[in-house]
Simulated assay, not measured.
Amino acid sequence: MSITVLTFVILERQIGSVPTPWPSWLVAAHPTRAQPENVSAFLGTLTEYVRSFDSAESREHANVKFIETNFGYPAEDIKAWLKTVSYPEQCLEIPRKVVTDTLGVLEKAGVVKAPEGGFDLENFVETKVAKLT
């Protein structure tokens, strides 16, 4: 999983960065309009593309060239950054730790409040589509 970093800037001066526990991207589908089997099929296909993108060959050449061409970063910076980025092995699996860590950060920030007895992680993942691991 890739790590998103929240950066705090006050009066145009950076005062710090906080790595977030959640992935930098997600796939969302409307619970009453999307068919679970279609979303699962999509995620299964996405897994193949993610594995290809994450290959050593792609990280060394194709990904560097793409980022360099489209975003103008120097190749050395791109290679260093790619060493810090990780991707899921399986897009149909969501680690429980990602969900619990995310909820913990959101709770500390006052965005969510844990119910008596804690969060039921099944409420945050459509288990007909992906499984908690």
Rank of each mutant, 00 (worst) to 15 (best):
T47I: 05
V85L: 12
N70Y: 08
G104N: 04
L103C: 06
L92Y: 03
G104L: 00
I94N: 03
W22A: 11
Q14A: 08
E107S: 07
L43G: 00
L46N: 00
S2A: 12
E107T: 04
H61S: 13
P31I: 04
P95E: 12
K113Y: 00
L82Y: 12
P19K: 10
R33A: 13
H61A: 05
V125A: 05
G16S: 06
I10C: 10
E126R: 14
Y73R: 13
A109S: 10
F119E: 00
E37V: 09
K65T: 14
F53I: 07
P19I: 03
A41T: 08
T45N: 13
A28M: 09
V39K: 04
V5N: 15
T84I: 01
I15T: 07
R59K: 15
G104I: 01
A41D: 10
G72R: 07
Q90D: 15
H30Q: 10
T127Y: 05
P19E: 02
V85D: 01
A41Q: 12
K113S: 10
L43D: 06
V18K: 12
V50Q: 00
T47V: 02
T84S: 13
H61M: 10
L103D: 01
S58L: 10
L11N: 15
N63Y: 12
A130K: 03
P36L: 01
A56K: 14
S17F: 11
F124P: 01
E116W: 07
L103F: 02
A114V: 00
P31C: 01
G104R: 00
R13M: 02
A62K: 09
T32L: 12
K97R: 14
I3L: 13
P31D: 03
Y73L: 14
S24W: 03
T102L: 10
P88M: 04
T100D: 02
G110T: 01
S17E: 15
G72K: 11
A56Q: 08
G110P: 02
A62V: 05
Y49C: 07
T133K: 15
L46V: 02
E12R: 13
A80P: 03
E122Q: 11
Y49R: 15
A109R: 11
R33P: 00
V125Y: 06
P31G: 08
V111T: 12
K79W: 03
S55F: 04
P23S: 14
G118R: 06
L103M: 05
A62C: 07
P23Y: 14
R33S: 09
A109M: 09
A80M: 09
H61G: 05
